[in-house]
């Protein structure tokens, strides 16, 4: 009996603490809302956003920056409902989303290009594939595309018996997914049967472990276990490696802007932070994280 009483006491105090904990956290959020910047969105940019926030918070002690990923779609969705101060996005806002923000929440989303990225095509490090054309990517990924084995691309991948191409893709709210569909598949749909992962890093680590895999992700996520394939616009064009120089000179065919949206014309703390990101320090961090600065 005594044991049970102690157990009940423990449980109830635990609940009480949780409730109190929640309460106090909410309180601080409300009090210091002007000092807290809520950043949400793109998974491609989440590491970058973290790096920015760490440095910025070290420099400016009174600002707290809360960062969460989830995908460009999540960030934009939160932004249009007024739940985030900034949305990271690796795709542009759609007309429908802007309309919703304007009509239903009376917001006026502003777009800022803060960096650039090459959308890299990854394969396993032992895959002999060196270059790929956009047309080949379409036959692998696009609905109605015929390529299902590596043999159809004229190569043999060691270590997989059936030579099947394991197509790695992203969940459908991802900006990377939307960008790939628009610029590689020409707005046609993906072939069903892709393995849909929910993070940029997940794509790369899955390819590391899967010999027959191909996938796309930001070039900042490259590791030693994977290989970035050179991309050709068509058969006659030169094959271009995804790196900063080729993004800057515009030769890499699937380079994309990294965007930040704010719900209104930015003011106060958000404006300061955005200016800092676009300034010297912020742009240096972009380079350190493996992306391309805008200036």
């Amino acid at each position: 009996m005594a044991k049970r009483n102690i157990l009940i006491a423990c449980l109830s105090s635990f609940f009480l603490l949780t409730i109190l904990g929640c309460g106090s956290r909410q309180g601080s959020g409300e009090d210091g809302s002007s000092n807290t910047i809520r950043v949400e969105g793109s998974d491609t940019m989440v590491n970058l956003a973290q790096a920015w926030a760490e440095k910025y918070q070290a420099e400016t002690a009174e600002i707290t920056i809360e960062i969460s990923g989830g995908g460009s779609g999540v960030g934009i969705s939160s932004l249009t409902q007024g739940l985030a101060d900034m949305a990271n996005a690796s795709r542009k806002m759609r007309a429908k989303e802007i309309r919703r923000a304007k009509n239903e929440y009376n917001l006026d989303p502003q777009e800022f290009t803060v960096g650039k990225d090459a959308l890299a095509i990854y394969v396993h490090k032992d895959n002999p594939l060196e270059e790929i054309t956009i047309a080949q990517l379409t036959t692998i990924y696009g609905e109605g595309g015929t390529a299902n084995t590596w043999a159809e691309l004229g190569i043999t991948v060691t270590g997989t018996e059936n030579q099947k191409i394991v197509r790695i893709s992203r969940q459908n709210n991802s900006g990377t997914y939307a960008y790939f569909r628009q610029h590689v598949l020409d707005d046609n749909d993906f072939k069903l049967g892709t393995i849909d992962l929910s993070g940029s890093a997940d794509v790369v680590s899955m390819i590391e472990k899967t010999r027959g895999a191909i996938g796309y992700s930001g070039m900042g996520y490259a590791t030693d276990g994977v290989k970035m394939v050179k991309v050709k616009l068509d058969n006659d064009s030169p094959s271009v490696a995804p790196n900063a120089a080729n993004v800057i000179n515009g030769t890499y065919p699937i380079a994309r802007p990294l965007l930040i949206y704010t719900p209104q014309e930015p003011t106060g703390a958000v404006k300061d932070y955005l200016d800092w990101i676009l300034g010297q320090t912020g742009q240096t961090i972009i380079e350190e994280m493996g992306y391309v600065p805008v200036k």
Binding site: Q81, K96, R100, N173, G193, L197
Partner: peptide, 30 residues
């Protein structure tokens, strides 16, 4: 494997109803 797919063998990746809700409800536009 979270892959929309009509399976033909035990080795095929598939996707389930529950996983689809979990993965997509958070970001679907209300």
């Amino acid at each position: 494997g979270h892959s929309v797919n009509m399976p033909t063998s035990l080795f095929d990746p598939v996707r389930t109803l529950t996983a689809t809700i979990a993965a997509e409800l958070g970001e679907a536009v209300r």
